[in-house]
Amino acid sequence: MHFDLPLPLLFLPSAHSHSPSIIASEICISVKIQCGSRTRFIAKCLNEDMGVDDSLLSNGRKCANFRLCKLSNYTSEILEIQADDPSLHVLFVPGNPGVILFYKDFVEFLYELLGGTASDWEHGRLFSLQEQIDHKIDFIKEELQDIEIPIILVGHSIGSYISVEMFKKSLKKVKYCVGLYPFLTLNPHSRAQLIIAKIAQSQIVAAALSYLTASLGLLPVNVLRFIVKKSLGKSWSSSAVEAACSHLSQYHTMRNVLYMAMTEFKELAETPDWTFLRERKDQCAFLFGVDDHWGPLQLLEEISKQVPGISLFIERENHTHGFCCTEAGSLWVAEHVANLIKNHMVSTNQ
């Protein structure tokens, strides 16, 4: 039986920051229990009051800016917060459907929790999974080629897989990679994944579903917003509701969602690259949810078995895979990510 108890984490303010320090009373306990020939991995996060600055929940936080840019001959959506004198760059890769406005609260919270000294980028997806990866590698080459400060990759869902692939191609620039509710391989026990795969593989069904979804866009805005709030977003933030109304009711958005899902299921039929993760285990961390079929706890157990010593965490606050759709979920995950980044930077600078 092996017990691994990291020390309580301490957030220190940046030298450039005028914001108060943030002390997190979060204790992560990883327990590895060996019973005969079987190995079972259990991870718990025990959270006390985290001393969060209430101003992070107010309208006074710095807003992320939305813009379009030309990248690899395609128009790309970018949500960014630029710092005057950044000490690091955080490049966030969203999950499918890649609608960047879903992550507005998360990006703004993360910026504030990092002391306002990081520049955050997050941009939407294009076409297939491999094209997504290539597109984001091009983003680093074209947008960040001249920077000398560290790049931190943060990915959500399939964005975690993309981030790991980006890490492989950008070893000199990328210093750390965080996967949130990671979709790294197929879950054979997920009925939802099976249904989505069948829909995505049929062009007729995918087109019909996309047209049906697009028909909602013909409704008056107030009616559409009411439907979204009642059916999907009862606890959603206003930015998530607006993102759903403006993007998910478009035909091409749903077609891209299903097309990318089809390519995801093909690529992720293979096992993760354990060799790379072992080589970079000190530069990677993953956060799992309790009941998440995209990143099930069986995957966490497999990672712990294949890559001993890698940082693994479980979120037990019921924020779910779609954490970015609520302010509470966005804040909690932003705190966790900021925590990881700050402690990694401290450990590497010692």
Rank of each mutant, 00 (worst) to 15 (best):
D85N: 13
G95F: 03
S76M: 08
C69L: 15
L91P: 00
I78N: 12
L113C: 15
S87C: 15
K141S: 08
A83M: 06
I140P: 01
E131T: 04
R61G: 07
L144S: 12
H135C: 06
E143Q: 11
I133R: 03
Q82N: 13
R61I: 05
P97H: 00
L56H: 04
E112V: 03
L79Y: 11
I133A: 07
G95T: 11
L71S: 04
C63F: 14
I140W: 02
L126G: 06
F106K: 03
F139P: 00
Q130H: 10
L129Q: 07
T117M: 13
N59C: 15
Y111N: 06
F66T: 04
F66C: 03
F106A: 05
I140H: 01
S76V: 06
Y74C: 06
H135M: 07
I100F: 01
L113Q: 10
G95K: 07
Q82R: 12
D105K: 01
H89P: 08
E112M: 09
L88Y: 13
L114M: 12
I100Y: 00
H123G: 03
S72T: 05
Q132T: 09
L57Q: 14
K136Q: 13
I137W: 05
Q130D: 11
E77K: 03
G95N: 06
V90Q: 04
L113W: 14
Y111P: 00
D85S: 14
R125H: 04
R61F: 05
E122K: 10
P94Q: 08
E77S: 06
T75L: 15
L126F: 13
A64L: 10
L126I: 15
E122P: 08
L126T: 11
Q132F: 08
F106L: 09
L110W: 02
R67L: 10
D85Y: 10
K141L: 14
E108H: 03
S119W: 08
H89Y: 13
K70Y: 10
L101K: 07
R61S: 08
N73R: 15
F92E: 02
E122L: 11
E77V: 11
K70C: 12
G98W: 00
S55L: 13
V99I: 04
R67V: 14
W121T: 01
D85P: 14
R125Y: 02
L126Y: 09
Y103G: 01
G95M: 05
L57V: 12
S76G: 07
K104F: 06
K136P: 05
E112P: 06
T117H: 09
V107Y: 00
G60Q: 14
H89I: 13
V99E: 00
I81F: 03
S87A: 15
P86R: 15
Q132L: 09
D138L: 09
S55N: 15
E112R: 02
G124A: 09
S58N: 14
K141W: 06
E77R: 01
D138H: 06
F102K: 02
T117C: 13
V90T: 07
S58Q: 11
F102Q: 02
V99K: 00
Y103S: 04
D105S: 06
S119G: 11
P97V: 00
V99S: 00
F92K: 02
Q82P: 11
G98A: 02
S87P: 12
E122H: 13
Q130P: 03
L113H: 13
W121K: 01
Y111W: 09
A64K: 10
N73Q: 15
T117G: 11
L114F: 06
S128E: 03
F127T: 08
H135I: 04
L91G: 03
Q82C: 09
F109D: 01
E143M: 11
